[in-house]
């Protein structure tokens, strides 16, 4: 009798472990049935010659981890985000981060420059902290939304994505895609505009009362050539890329060199305060009739130039690798 007592305790504990998280509508019924099934299994083993305690242990071991069995009985998904919606989940995460991260960086950088604390460490650290916070928030909330979706929709729908896929969602660029006319035109036009602005500024504005002289027209000619030259090279390269249909390694190297040269020269001149006219606030004030109690901060401008160039080089290299 006492032997039977301990044996039934094992079964009791097992059945309780399986059914404790099931609802009141199914729990007792599952418990009753499961207990019967276990006893059937134990009896079959005893009939085959096993000793009772050993038989019970074996029967329960065969059924395995009660938590796993409990999840088989429950109809909740056994994962946070399942394979049916995982691609959408990743796409949404990527899409949000791709927009929000640059935006956060740009806004916080701008805010630091406006508040002009001038501490370079603070300028770098602030945006970095903001970017990490945005990433954590986006990941958490998107995951939460998808986990809730997984748990609220009917079990039969779980293998399917939430939104139907169509061909419109295909990425616009594929590895074989040619560099398009529009893209090339935009690039060439934009660079040409910058060249025109530089030339206009370095030749000296015609009417200082109505046009602002931002760049220093007294800059030595070799520097001017080093600033305009790389841009001309970039236009030539952009046309070459359009002709060959893609970024070849040679064209990419040329672009990177031109871009780097331009950035280095610009940053060098900015930091030595040779690029921008020293009395820009006064000139600005004279043209627009506003107060002149501000000064040009070369460091943030240099950081911006470097950031732009790095982005340009990285995107060029990525497109070459495709």
């Amino acid at each position: 009798m006492s032997e039977r007592g301990t044996a039934s305790t094992l079964t009791d504990r097992y059945v309780w472990s399986v059914t404790r998280h099931l609802g009141p509508d199914t729990g007792p019924d599952v418990a009753r049935e499961l207990r019967g099934s276990i006893q059937d299994s134990v009896e079959a083993r005893i009939d085959a010659g096993a000793d009772p305690e050993h038989a019970e242990r074996e029967a329960l071991t065969e059924l395995g981890d009660p938590d796993l069995l409990a999840r088989e009985y429950g109809d909740r998904p056994r994962y946070l985000v399942g394979p049916g919606v995982y691609p959408e989940y990743v796409r949404l995460l990527r899409g949000l981060l791709a927009v929000l991260l640059p935006l956060t960086l740009a806004l916080t950088l701008a805010e630091r420059f406006v508040s002009a604390s001038g501490d370079p460490g603070d300028v770098v650290l602030g945006p970095l902290v903001a970017a990490i916070a945005v990433t954590v928030h986006v990941c958490f909330w998107v995951t939460l939304v998808y986990a809730v979706i997984e748990r609220t929709r009917p079990a039969e729908a779980r293998d399917r994505p939430v939104t139907a896929w169509d061909t419109g969602q295909l990425p616009e660029e594929s590895p074989g895609a040619r560099v398009g006319v529009a893209e090339t035109l935009f690039h060439v036009a934009f660079t040409a505009l910058v060249i025109a602005l530089l030339t206009w500024q370095f030749l000296g504005v015609a009417d200082p009362a109505r046009q602002v002289q931002v760049l220093d027209p007294d800059l030595a000619l070799p520097w001017v050539v080093l600033l305009v030259g790389p841009l001309v090279v970039e236009i030539v390269l952009a046309l070459a890329v359009w002709r060959s249909g893609r970024w070849t390694p040679a064209l990419a190297v040329g672009h990177v060199l031109a871009s780097a040269t331009w950035a280095i020269v610009t940053v060098w001149l900015l930091l030595r305060e040779q690029l921008i006219v020293p009395d820009l606030p006064e000139r600005f004030g004279a043209v627009f009739g506003v107060a002149t109690d501000w000064s040009v901060a070369p460091l943030p401008l240099a950081v911006a130039v470097i950031a732009l160039s790095v982005w340009d080089v990285v995107s060029c290299l990525r497109r070459t690798r495709r």
Binding site: V30, E62, L63, G64, L68, L69
Partner: peptide, 11 residues
């Protein structure tokens, strides 16, 4: 296996 069959019957 029992742990496959019993929940399956319920489903």
């Amino acid at each position: 296996d029992g742990n496959t069959l019993y929940p399956l019957l319920r489903r």
